[in-house]
Amino acid sequence: MNNILNQNPLESEAIYIFREVVTQFENPVLLFSGGKDSITLVRLAEKAFFPSKIPFPLMHIDTGHNFPETIEFRDKLVKEMGLQLIVRKVQDDIDNGKSVEETGKYSSRNSLQTNTLLEAIEEFKFDACIGGARRDEEKARAKERIFSVRNDFGEWDEKNQRPEVFDMLNGRIEIGQNVRVFPISNWTELDVWKYIDQEKIKIPSIYFSHEREIFERDGLIWTASEHVFKDELEEVKTRNVRFRTVGDVTCTAAVESHARTIEQIVHEITNSPISERGARIDDKRSEAAMETRKQQGYF
């Protein structure tokens, strides 16, 4: 038997939030992207309910433009842990006319995910969607509550958020509304990496340095892929890169890196002059790109 438990306050807070979710809501779901933050959430959920199994399913809103490594990882994790995985595809909403594919050089299905997510919330009547967003990532996210209420159109009313005092969480909502829950709101990128290291959590290989065919545009490193538009003047090269944040192929840029271990990654991001989301193509669309997407019901 171990002696005295002195828990990391961030871990304690996240576990507390998970336990509030399952008791305050009827039908929660964990939004799983295959990125390091949602993988960390799975670990925290496992800890919160042990020895019971994680009492809610995972849901992946699939743009179809994935890094294959992420999907492989997702399926392996779900199988090993005996979790339930729901996948809803942006492609299906394009096929049935609910979403319209973007065109042009910067086309991406990133914002189309919102539509598919909101459809899925309605289909399964989810009242709480747990996500891995953190406040240190982005200025609009820095403003968001841990229990963030969405109306029946999935919209975030950022100017009139429900007060959230101390650790008292109020998840009461009307039918049709849903709450987005962010258990690792107060974690930083570094906290997540230290936790992954401490817990020996497995993550997809694309977070570590590897050789990849890329091309450069607007000072960012884009993946050369059939899903990414590239004009003829943009030259494909092979580089040692890794991904610091993982969305799909069209919205995530790589960074040059030789970091092959978590220790090297921690060292790299501690000394990096660029923020984590500096490599997010989706955030660069405008100054308020994240806020606008959030208002519409994005993650």
Partner: peptide, 19 residues
Amino acid sequence: EIYFFDKKYVEASSGSSVT
């Protein structure tokens, strides 16, 4: 027993989320 995940502890200090 005081559990945190799959480990048992003799004592838990203030602020810990336990079972």
